[in-house]
């Protein structure tokens, strides 16, 4: 079952195409990475999914149903450009946002109390937002995003402006919500941030989809048959003739095996030559490597 399905979605602005025939599916219950450099069209895509803007063409299905006016109440969206009413009190603010999401007054109050307790900030109810630190404000922002228990949570650059402690706090919450069954779309241009979090990814550039799929599969599909070998003792010279040596330093080798060879052959050759191997690993490419390989240049 897919929580979200995009089919040939197109969004054109006057001089450029922000989203160019993009299709991908987000499986239920996953943490999904929406990746791409700044200006790739991530935010445009998200705004289409959240019905803030409408696609010029294509179909978006949420839980198998075409997105419509009730979609916003099923999605929790934390935009990249986010903020709160500075003069409002924490409690009032959350009550307002929760009711806009369709919660009744009573439900909103209960949910907010629960969440404030959970974050150990129950005493903040009557504090003005402007009295809180930036990190504290982000906690309130996060609560406001998930207060209506959305089935799909979309976070656009969720860690921007957060110190590592608060980033971890939010990260833990994301994991927990995911454990409880919430599907999460995680949009960022910082690819290293999602390597550890996401199970699936879609990579977009200049409005076009570059690739998508299961993270492990994507890495395997793009691997370069690179192996790192730690060893003890001396290395016979002819190993470098037989295999392509990417780099070698004291007791560490990086070897690229050609596609028609097997990593076992490399290992066998090393053993036959009395090299004492202490570790033997395949080096999978980072998402950044894959991105550079796919589009030919780096974002940063």
């Amino acid at each position: 079952m897919n929580v979200l399905e995009l089919i040939d979605v197109v969004k054109r602005y006057e001089n450029h195409t922000a989203v160019d025939n993009v299709s991908f599916t987000v499986p239920q219950g996953t943490i999904y990475g929406l990746l791409g450099p700044n200006g790739a069209g991530k935010t445009s895509l998200i705004r289409i999914i959240t019905t803030i803007t409408r696609a010029d063409r294509g179909t978006v299905l949420l839980n198998g149903e075409k997105i419509n006016s009730s979609t916003p109440s099923k999605i929790g969206y934390m935009p990249e450009e986010r903020g709160l009413y500075k003069k409002m009190k924490v409690g009032e603010q959350l009550m307002y946002l929760a009711q806009l999401k369709g919660l009744s007054k009573r439900d909103a109050k209960k949910e907010i109390s629960d969440w404030l307790d959970k974050f150990d900030v129950a005493s903040w109810w009557d504090k003005r937002i402007e009295e809180l630190s930036k990190g504290m404000q982000q906690k309130i922002q996060f609560i406001s995003t998930i207060i209506h228990r959305p089935k799909l949570l979309i976070l656009d650059e969720p860690f921007s402006g957060l110190d590592p402690i608060n980033a971890n706090l939010i990260k833990d919450e994301i994991y927990q919500l995911n454990q409880e069954g919430t599907s999460i779309i995680f949009s960022t241009h910082r690819m290293e941030q999602v390597e550890e979090i996401c199970e699936h990814i879609v990579l977009i550039n200049k409005g076009k989809k570059v690739l998508d799929g299961n993270m492990k599969q994507v890495k395997l599909d793009n691997k370069e048959n690179l192996y790192r070998i730690d060893y003890e003792g001396t290395l016979p010279n002819h190993i470098g003739d037989q295999f392509k040596l990417e780099s070698s330093s004291e007791n560490e080798l990086l070897i690229k095996v050609s596609p028609d060879e097997d990593s076992n052959q490399l290992l066998a050759a090393l053993i036959q030559n009395n090299v004492h191997v202490t570790s033997f690993n395949e080096v999978l490419p980072t998402l950044n490597d894959i991105f550079i390989k796919q589009v030919g240049h780096s974002d940063e």
Partner: peptide
């Protein structure tokens, strides 16, 4: 300026 507007229009 507060950047709240996109938060709001994600529900209305």
């Amino acid at each position: 300026t507060n950047r709240i507007v996109e938060v709001i229009i994600s529900s209305v």
